[in-house]
Amino acid sequence: MEQHYLKSSYREKLIEHLFIGELLKMSWASGDCSLEISKPEVDNQGYDLIAEENGVIRHIQLKTAKLDAKAAYQKVHIALASKPSGCVLWIFFNETSMQMGPFLFFGGKPGEKLPDISQFKIARHTKGNKDGVKAERPDIREVRKTAFVRYDSVESIYNTLFYKQLDHVPGKS
């Protein structure tokens, strides 16, 4: 669908708003109604949202991909590791219905920092300079898809973000 690459910024905002709406519904359903969402004014610390629920603060980097996407990694800023409960959420969606899921999560338990990403490959710029050289981006790492944990529902992501223990620590076998 041509619309997906011509209007990719619109699509990303749409997925972000749908996801926030789902989190708010989960907070409502829990009876707490205490979820707060904030957005940074400047995007230079590796996150798109700050979400707080019952004292748990999450700095969340959102990534999106169509269900048939072939990406093997996501680029993650090292500054995200310094944020409270920093995490990356890779949201897959149906390109026709915009239905979200599955969700891939890279992060620690509530209150824990982002797992160490220093061992991941240093990212490079997508475009070359005048000589065609794609310079390294020393503050960005390519976190492999295999380091993410898959969740199939918004409920499981909500619980992972704010309440429940993770089945295992991402990036560890």
Rank of each mutant, 00 (worst) to 15 (best):
F93A: 03
Q99W: 07
Q119W: 10
E136K: 12
E52I: 09
Y151T: 00
Q61W: 00
N94T: 08
Q165Y: 09
S97N: 07
I15H: 01
D68P: 06
T64W: 03
C87R: 01
C87V: 08
G108K: 04
L67N: 15
Q74R: 12
Y5R: 15
T160M: 07
K109G: 03
D116I: 08
K127C: 08
W28G: 11
I117G: 01
P40G: 10
I78M: 13
L18F: 09
W90A: 00
K113P: 05
G171D: 05
G86K: 00
R58Y: 03
M100N: 09
S30N: 12
K13N: 13
V169M: 14
I140H: 02
Q61T: 00
E53P: 05
N129M: 07
S173R: 14
S156L: 10
G108E: 05
V56D: 01
D131Y: 13
E52L: 05
V42D: 05
G101I: 04
S118Q: 14
P84N: 10
L35P: 04
F106Q: 02
C33D: 14
I78T: 12
F93V: 03
G132K: 09
F148D: 00
G55K: 11
K121T: 12
D48L: 04
Y151R: 04
H125I: 05
L104D: 01
I37T: 09
L89C: 06
Y47H: 10
K25H: 09
H17S: 12
H4Y: 14
G31V: 09
Y5W: 15
V154Y: 01
P84S: 11
G86M: 02
A51H: 03
D43Y: 08
L24E: 07
H17A: 12
L104T: 00
K172D: 12
E22L: 07
L89W: 02
K127T: 12
S8Q: 13
D43F: 07
K145Y: 09
A29N: 15
S153W: 04
Y151E: 02
L18P: 02
Y151K: 02
M100H: 06
S8V: 09
P40R: 08
K63F: 02
T160G: 01
I157V: 15
T96C: 13
T160C: 06
E12W: 02
C87Q: 01
